[in-house]
């Protein structure tokens, strides 16, 4: 009898945990990650993080604080040593290599160095994201110009990345990240290579994307934008979450 009760309790607990994680688009529980080439020094320790659908979150911290590792875990570029990483209801710790591509299509990603395909023009860079989800050419011809208009690059669809400014390249990357209508947009230092004017433009675009219902997670160390936007701020330091505040500010050492 006692055994049966124990079993029931265990099942209930696991159901509740499932319910808990299903409320969030990003759900990390007791996550640890260490790199083998860093003599076992952990990059992330006991990370617990919950982000709801439609939130706008900044993740801030100095170099080596674990920001990049966190993004890599969310992208399933790395897997956690222990703990749970659930993104868009998918448990990334149990995900097989073959399922990763399909999972990533539910995310949009923007990087500091833009990562555009250099030998293809603006249109083809954005269309590439649609082609991998097997959209028809007809749909691509409709969706790509719409997205380029949204980021303000409708007139430059034929240009190659090297013919564009940093700000424009980041807009192309943003258009590519958004064209498949992802539920989450991950932006890793999206303004790291931009001047203040372009930084503001990109942040405005990210806000607009968020207003349309997309969850936006921005990793940055740009104090000004964090302080001016009054969003949720999660501060990482040496692999642990130092603070997690609604309408937070950039915390200095």
């Amino acid at each position: 009898m006692a055994e049966k009760e124990k079993e029931e309790k265990k099942k209930k607990k696991s159901r509740d945990k499932g319910k808990d994680s299903s409320k969030y688009v990003i759900y990390l529980e007791d996550v640890n990650k260490a790199y083998s080439d860093a003599n076992g020094v952990p990059a992330l320790m006991d990370i617990n993080l919950k982000i709801k659908k439609g939130e706008f979150v900044f993740i801030v911290g100095d170099s080596g604080s674990g920001k990049s590792t966190l993004i890599k875990l969310l992208l399933r570029e790395l897997t956690a040593d222990s703990g749970k990483v659930i993104v868009n209801d998918q448990d990334l710790t149990k995900m097989r290599h073959a399922q990763v591509a399909k999972f990533r299509r539910t995310l949009g990603v923007v990087f500091q160095d833009f990562r555009l395909l250099k030998d293809r023009n603006v249109y083809d860079n954005v269309a590439f994201a649609q082609r991998i989800v097997l959209k028809s050419e007809k749909e691509i011809r409709k969706n790509v110009p719409n997205m380029l208009s949204m980021v303000g690059l409708a007139g430059k669809y034929k240009a190659k990345p090297k013919q564009l400014s940093g700000g424009e390249q980041q807009r192309v990357a943003l258009a590519r990240a958004l064209v498949n209508k992802p539920t989450i947009l991950l932006a890793d230092e999206p303004t790291g290579n931009l001047d203040p004017r372009n930084t503001n433009d990109i942040m405005k675009l990210l806000e607009k994307v968020n207003e349309n219902g997309t969850t936006v997670v921005v990793v940055t160390h740009n104090r000004d934008i964090v302080n001016s936007m009054q969003k949720r701020v999660i501060t990482l330091k040496q692999g642990v979450i130092l603070s997690d505040e609604e309408k937070g500010a950039y915390i200095d050492d």
Binding site: A101, F103, R104, V109, R115, L117, A129, I132
Partner: peptide
């Protein structure tokens, strides 16, 4: 790098 970009965007192998 080109291969990495494709993989990040969600391209299958």
């Amino acid at each position: 790098e080109e291969i990495n970009i494709m993989k990040y965007v969600g391209a299958t192998d």
